[in-house]
Design a protein around this nucleic acid. Sequence first.
DNA 1: ATGCAACCTCAAGCTAAGTTGAGGTCAAGC
DNA 2: GCTTGACCTCAACTTAGCTTGAGGTTGCAT
Lengths: 145, 145
Amino acid sequence: MKANDLLPIGDLARRTGLSVSAIRFYEEKGLVEPHRTAGNQRRFLRSDIRRLSFILIAQKLGLSLSEIEEALAGLPQGRTPNAADWKRISGEVKKRIDAQIAALEKVREDLDGCIGCGCLSLKKCALYNAGDKWGEGGSGPRVLR
Amino acid sequence: MKANDLLPIGDLARRTGLSVSAIRFYEEKGLVEPHRTAGNQRRFLRSDIRRLSFILIAQKLGLSLSEIEEALAGLPQGRTPNAADWKRISGEVKKRIDAQIAALEKVREDLDGCIGCGCLSLKKCALYNAGDKWGEGGSGPRVLR
DNA sequence: ATGCAACCTCAAGCTAAGTTGAGGTCAAGC
DNA sequence: GCTTGACCTCAACTTAGCTTGAGGTTGCAT
């Protein structure tokens, strides 16, 4: 192994498929903390490739960056998230997915009922009322997440 | 029935649970087209209560406002969406829901595999690659929808 | 005929997850 | 030792779906 295993941001971008600007953005959000050269350029550890991959995957599973940050908080910078970490974090993720699927299945059911009745009677419609339960926590009516 | 069945925006807001500002916003987006009084105040038809309820429900099912506008395009202003309309539109919606559930189920499956392996090996991980298929169509990595 | 709640417009702000651009610096090869 | 591509910062812009605020007008009840 070479002594100087530090990667400039462009290399990291190429390795992860992320854009350079996205990586800088993640740094700003505290998701990675690269070293700097004397000339102020970022130098990343090899393990950051994994760290960023992890972020990508978690994101695809529907976690927001701040949730990912939280999940990652236990991992020291410079350590690759290992199987145990992954297990811990993915357990959380699995719960969310299950909940999402359950919610969608309920909608589908209600929708079947509504197709029959075509009621759209607000306050009575099962769909509408079901919606209210998950439509919380944001500004105004929101999309299923 | 009273001759003048026109509702001011506040009444409509109360009836639908929407905020006044949201209704104005929807008008701006072309989703409702109220009449105006001589003094420039909005006056809505009773049928707009249903129209807005419809928007709310469609939104909860994951349609964007522009998609809803499209769906609503066939309905003349002033006519309540009836059972046939609802059937037509909800058919579309059902397809989306099925697709969403299928996608989530696939993720859950992959996740189960990954919990075992803990690999996180980018480019090889089923999860990562599965993600790529739906991560399209936006800027940067995106959330499951 | 007057008081005041409800209405009006327009502009700016919010969140998420970045991108884009301007203007400037660094580092590596020739 | 100079050129060139990769890097730097900072600010502004993007989309969606609204909210908030300022400053002004309307319309209904008394």
